[in-house]
């Protein structure tokens, strides 16, 4: 394939995922509002918010790392998306998949957070390092079940290519990892709760404790970048989970439906739970989810049938 065309297709994918991520965000906000008995924001509100922050006429910087923080964050989001085939078999939404892309994606998921940590650390606000410490600690914890789940998936499909993993799940609903390797999916969904930053795992932006954590000092166009990244990154994560565990998608409506359904899990847990403390959160992830992850690996080792 022509590389220029492939980059063009990638840009199209990013835009589609961005729009979809923002719509999803608004839709989730509306869902939460309905649980709380409200009407909630209009469905186009996230778009307005991004343009509004972008359209601020003044900005204050705290140094080079502060400037680079949102850039790193966005790079993390874009990089994650770049190696995930959004729609299986589609030329436009196929992205730059290659044999070992899952490993690279796992790296990119955490790249953004580390970059953000450097940037927010320079902002000088005491809540920012506090939020970063919490975020990194929790991230280290939920990475364990997630890594175990991904290892189990590696063992199951004997490949590290997302496209091949999706290909192996085609045909019937019973080919999904959800049914062939339920323990891995369970462990990964636990990790997804931690990744998606809804209660009880919204430690990083806990509004009553360290309002709103690392991005406390980010404003104007910086914040606009962060908001963009949030949408892209959420979309990329959802697509990754859909590809690995829920059979991928062969067209756009299926993708929308599946990712929305996956996202509803942390949201519905989120509206009904208080927040963990950071030590509770770490203890939680290193407990049952890790155990389930280990079981998933053992299951694949001894009883796995592919």
């Amino acid at each position: 394939m022509n590389w220029a065309l492939s980059i063009f297709y990638y840009i199209v994918t990013v835009l589609v995922v961005l729009v979809y991520g923002l719509l999803l965000y608004a839709f989730i906000a509306k869902t939460m509002a309905r649980v709380q008995g409200r009407i909630g924001i209009p469905i186009y509100q996230p778009f307005l918010d991004i343009i509004q922050t972008y359209g601020r006429r003044t900005a204050v910087t705290h140094g080079y790392m502060f400037d680079l923080g949102p850039v790193f964050r966005l790079t993390g989001g874009l990089g994650t998306l770049a190696f995930i085939p959004v729609i299986y078999g589609s030329e436009i939404f196929g992205n730059f998949h290659f044999a070992g892309d899952l490993l690279l994606v796992m790296y990119f998921i955490f790249f953004g957070q580390l970059g953000m940590a450097l940037g927010a650390g320079e902002s000088g606000h005491p809540y920012a390092p506090m939020g970063i410490a919490r975020g990194l600690a929790q991230m280290t914890a939920f990475e364990v079940p997630f890594a175990l789940a991904v290892i189990a998936v590696f063992m199951q499909y004997e490949t590290a290519s997302i496209t091949e993993i999706v290909a192996a799940q085609q045909g019937s609903i019973y080919n999904w990892t959800l049914f062939t390797n339920p323990f891995a999916v369970l462990a990964a969904m636990f990790a997804f709760l931690g990744m998606s930053m809804y209660p009880p795992f919204d430690l990083v932006t806990a509004p009553n404790e360290i309002p709103i954590g690392p991005p406390t000092e980010y404003h104007s166009a910086y914040l606009s970048l962060l908001q963009t990244n949030r949408a892209i990154f959420a979309g990329a994560k959802l697509v990754l989970f859909m590809n690995l565990f829920f059979g991928g998608a062969t067209n756009l409506p299926i993708m929308v439906l599946k990712t929305w359904a996956i996202y509803m899990i942390p949201v519905l847990i989120g509206v009904a739970f208080p927040r963990f403390k950071v030590e509770n959160s770490i203890r939680f992830f290193l407990g049952v989810p890790t155990l389930v992850g280990i079981i998933a690996v053992l299951y694949m080792q001894y009883w796995g049938t592919v």
């Binding site: 008995g37 409200r38 009880p200 009553n208 509206v271």
Partner: peptide, 16 residues
């Protein structure tokens, strides 16, 4: 009290 532990849903209900 519920909101301070992160349950904003209860806060919305009670204030209403």
């Amino acid at each position: 009290a519920c909101g301070s532990f992160g349950m904003s849903t209860v806060y919305q209900w009670t204030v209403t």
